[in-house]
Amino acid sequence: MSASNGTKKNMNLKLLVWRQSGGKDKGKMTTYQANDISPDMSFLEMLDVVNENIIRDGGEPIAFEHDCREGICGSCGVMINGVAHGPDEGTAACQLHMRSFNDGDEIVIEPWRARAFPVIRDLVVDRSALDRIIAAGGYISVNTGNAPDGNAIPIPKEMSNDAMDSAACIGCGACIAQCKNASAALFTSAKIAHLALLPQGDPERGERVIRMVAQMDAEKFGSCSNEGECEAVCPKEIQMTNISLMNREYERAILANKK
């Protein structure tokens, strides 16, 4: 757990950062010194400081993706010492604070690694495969204006809570980056579970899981072998039980299709 405020002094750190000018470039690790880093900085603010120094020295800053910086947009995400989003559990890189590190630490920073996530530049990768999985069926087909009153179908509180747990996924891709198979099972199953748990999602349940799983495979994500790395690094603590639910949904849909 984090140290309390004010107990830590500013730190000097050595960073090993993956630099790659574009998709065709081979890329290499480059060393940077990050000095006088406050423990209250976020990890991305530390990178801001390093980048400002690089620009002043006439270099090109490290490209990394980020936006909301409050752990909800899912833009950010890098491997920090081999761990997606770094050492703190349930935390995206933007909410990781430097108080989790110590003076003199060496920090290795790399982009997400997965065949389905080609590097665009430095730490920025192309995650559009995740959008295509959603497009394949991650929705309820209801046109605007079709809806009955919001209270027409009561939904048990517990069921709604479970759906919310799954729906909390921010689509950052950490689960895939950490998995040795680069499997997208946690991401895909979270959406399948969210919609399968709700009565509104029921009519398309079978079709949805078949199409989303097929798209996941087509994008060249690997298979799930129940390593659990995904759950361990998920900044929103999405549970692996979603994957079991997806597998059950898939079996059910395949059997139903055979009729």
């Binding site: 929705y139 309820i140 209801v142 605007t144 209270n151 048990p156 709604s160 759906a163 919310m164 999602g201």
Partner: peptide, 22 residues
């Protein structure tokens, strides 16, 4: 009022009471 209906139909998991209502 239409917005809430639309979002519920899309599967937005709004908070609910024990009786299942919003």
């Amino acid at each position: 009022v239409n917005i809430i209906d639309q979002c519920v139909a899309q599967g937005v998991p709004f908070a609910r009471e024990y009786g299942g209502y919003l």
